[in-house]
């Protein structure tokens, strides 16, 4: 049963990643693109955790944590660059 639930989760997150990528491409404004990138990084965290579940190993945890941190930092940096024209003033 866990296997089918894992397949379902993989399919859902893959479709969600594709939809976020579509929004990243067609996004009418910069804010939508930043939002799509943020969503993609969060989806990537979920995907890596699912991969760790499927593989039954704890190695993927650090990768998920690092991607979560880098996603937040990149979102804030991008938003600040759009807002202020500079990241660290």
């Amino acid at each position: 049963m866990i296997t089918y639930a894992l397949y379902f989760g993989f399919a859902c997150i893959a479709i969600a990643q594709l939809l976020a990528m579509v929004r990243l491409i067609i996004g009418p404004d910069v804010g939508d693109r930043i939002l799509a990138l943020d969503t993609m990084s969060i989806n990537t965290v979920a995907l890596i955790v699912l991969l760790g579940l499927a593989g039954g190993s704890q190695i993927y945890f650090e990768a998920a944590l690092i991607i979560a941190m880098l996603g937040f930092v990149s979102t804030v940096a991008y938003a600040r660059f759009v807002l202020r024209g500079d990241i660290i003033e």
């Binding site: 379902f8 997150i13 939809l19 989806n43």
Partner: peptide
């Protein structure tokens, strides 16, 4: 199925559905 299996599967399905709904809303 054991109780743990059911809980894991339920959490996985709920999580996947929520992520999918979020991205559908984004589109």
């Amino acid at each position: 199925y054991s109780l743990g299996d059911i809980a894991i599967s339920l959490a996985l399905v709920i999580g996947g559905a929520f992520v999918l709904v979020g991205s559908i809303g984004l589109i």
